[in-house]
Amino acid sequence: MAPDPSPDRPTGRRRRRRPLWQEGLVLLVVAVLLAVVVKSLFVQAFYIPSESMEPGLVEDDRILVQKVSYWFDGEPERGDVVVFEDPGSWLEPGATGRTTAVGRVLGWVGLRPVGGHLVKRVIGVAGDTIVCCDDQGRLAVNGRPLEEDAYVRDAATVACRGPQVPSCSWTAGPVPEGSLFVMGDNRERSADSSRHLCLPGTTDCSDDPYVPVGNVVGKVFLLAWPADRIDRLTRPGTFADVPEPATGS
């Protein structure tokens, strides 16, 4: 029988411990990779670049956007508040804001809120027709008026939910396939689809007021900062009553 190994003598080669700086570097790399994966596939942080979504979202608010809802065949629905890439000269010069090189890197990996995008509410999806406005100042989608007092700014005082560019009487749509008609909740201060409509009497417009679905980054689900205003965003119930567009519209 072989003698028991001496407790004072190692039975095999002892594993060499990495230096502390190497372990820290490995942990940092893993954390960055996880952050990139989370940002790319699940959740990304942004900040509100303007007053266009007041009163619910105020300039410089920090928001979280989830991407899972639009995986596979999922697409934005009426009432969703979405973040999307500029479809073509919608952002004003300098709207991306100034940031340091470190800030840009942190934004790229998802560890800092980023700008350079737009945040609007989806009013119409493919096939929808939007009409402004009825005798109560309400937008109508596919003939159904929207009750928007719960989220539009100055709901009790504005004449219509238009906005009035150049008047409170216009029609948009049918929305092309693969596109969205979007508006800010602060209707008088939002560079949105209604501002880019080429209507009689307007000169500052584009030929395409619609946002490609492919430009959408994700759906806003949480107002994350400031701490005293943390809130979850949900789709307003008024959009549940909107009928589907008529066949051939």
Rank of each mutant, 00 (worst) to 15 (best):
D60K: 10
R9H: 07
R9A: 08
W21A: 13
I48T: 05
P93K: 04
D80Q: 11
L57V: 00
K67T: 08
L25V: 15
L34G: 11
I48N: 00
L57D: 03
A95G: 00
R13A: 14
P10R: 06
V29W: 01
Y70W: 12
G12M: 11
R15I: 11
A35H: 02
Q22W: 15
D60V: 02
W21S: 14
L33E: 11
E23W: 12
P76K: 08
D61W: 00
L25Q: 08
S69F: 10
G94R: 00
P49S: 04
S52N: 01
D86W: 09
I48A: 07
P55R: 03
V43N: 03
L64S: 07
V37E: 01
S40W: 13
V83H: 01
R78N: 09
S52T: 00
I48Y: 00
V29H: 07
K39A: 10
D8G: 14
L27H: 14
E75D: 14
G88F: 07
V37T: 11
D61A: 03
P10C: 05
S6I: 05
Q44Y: 02
W21R: 12
I63N: 02
A31W: 10
L28F: 14
P87M: 12
E85W: 09
G56T: 14
E92M: 10
S52R: 01
L57N: 01
L41M: 06
G24N: 10
D60I: 03
F42W: 15
S89T: 12
D80L: 08
P10D: 03
V37K: 09
F84R: 06
L33M: 11
Y47C: 02
G12P: 05
V29F: 03
V65D: 01
D60W: 03
G94D: 04
V30I: 13
R13P: 11
G94L: 02
